[in-house]
Amino acid sequence: MAAVAARYDELQVLGVDVISVSVDSMFTHKMWNDHELSKMVDGGIPWMMAADGAGKVGKVYGVYDEEAGVELRGRFIIDPDGIIQAAEILTPPVGRNLDETIRQIQAFQHVRQTGGKEAMPADWTPGKPTLTPGPDLVGQVWKVWKPE
């Protein structure tokens, strides 16, 4: 969570807010924030740390591990219409990559800004060319895009 907090300003500029969820109580969230996370990131966690003790929310999002009684490292990008545009679920030992999360947010925001007229090819980052799907592009993608 500290890794996400370190990029929070960047996320806010993109109009993104964060909600974190685990099975821990809000009292434990307070202790973790105050005694550890705030020492990793200035000011600690700036968003709502939700408590999902029974794993009800995690179950619906497909991240609750019944055997272990904890939630997997799930990450969902939800647009302003409430639609999940992207999801990633990792088992506990591996952490997230915030560069990739932010890249996906920027790509989905670009799609939204163009009203779905443009699509983002693999490895797209802001400033790189986009694709405009349509009959003229069929079989012609090689002319405008190649893998790096």
Binding site: M1, V4, L11, L14, G15, V16, D17, V18, I19, S20, V21, S22, V23, D24, T28, H29, M31, W32, E36, G58, Y61, V63, A68, V70, E71, L72, R73, G74, R75, F76, I77, I78, D79, P80, P92, R96, T101, I105, Q109
Partner: peptide, 13 residues
């Protein structure tokens, strides 16, 4: 209000 990043994680500490 806008875009939301919903993050689950295995546990505090």
């Amino acid at each position: 209000k806008g875009w939301t990043l919903l993050c689950f994680y295995p546990g505090d500490f």
